Amino acid sequence: MTEYNPPISERETEELIEIANCNDENIWQREATLQAKKELVKRNISQEEQNEVIEKWDKILEEKLKEEAARLEKNKIESYTKLEMLRLFLFGPLIFMDQFPFGSDRFTLVNLRDENYYLKFKQRIILFILSFIAWFFFVNYTFEQTKKERQKEIDKIDISDWKTTHGYE
């Protein structure tokens, strides 16, 4: 007979009911379920009492499933605040690449989809697209301005001495 830790005989009655009524051998070995059933008989726990406990668990599970369904339904229409939208717009590329230095965003696009945040998912995609476009134009403009400044400095340089030294004039 296999000994479990803690021993089957020392476990709570509800845990014994769970073990005894488990039909999946990947969770509990057959020997453990048999020991649990024997222990329940020793404790005078009838099958009807076991069924009552199982029904109670089923009701609890059903309530939790209803609560989860209601939560997911509520998530469908939840929107970002204006401040969150501004943050996503300004730092979109950094947040997208998970390089945002001021705390990480708790939701990725995949998480939003999985948690049924359809409105937030759409808003986030739109904000990321707009953010990437804005950042592209900003970087491009900055690069062009830097090029112009550099060209101005080059144009200011007097190369007449160099030309005369090398015979260009």
Rank of each mutant, 00 (worst) to 15 (best):
T2C: 02
N5A: 10
E10R: 02
E12I: 09
E15G: 04
N21W: 06
N23K: 08
E25D: 10
E25M: 13
I27D: 02
R30T: 11
L40I: 04
R43E: 01
R43H: 08
I45P: 00
I45A: 01
S46N: 02
Q47A: 15
E48G: 10
E49L: 13
N51L: 07
E52R: 08
W57N: 13
D58F: 05
K59Y: 13
K59E: 13
E63Q: 14
E68G: 05
L72Y: 00
N75L: 13
K76R: 14
I77L: 08
I77E: 08
I77F: 07
Y80E: 05
R87F: 01
L88D: 01
L88N: 00
F91P: 04
F91C: 04
P93V: 12
F96S: 14
M97E: 11
Q99V: 01
F100L: 08
F100I: 12
P101T: 10
G103L: 04
F107T: 05
T108F: 02
N111L: 13
N116R: 05
Y117R: 10
Y118A: 15
F121P: 02
K122T: 01
I126M: 15
L127E: 05
I129P: 13
L130H: 14
F132P: 11
A134K: 04
F136E: 02
F138M: 07
V139L: 13
V139I: 12
V139S: 08
V139C: 11
T142L: 06
K147N: 11
K148T: 05
K148H: 14
Q151K: 12
K152A: 10
K156V: 13
T165C: 06
H166C: 11
Y168W: 13
E169I: 07
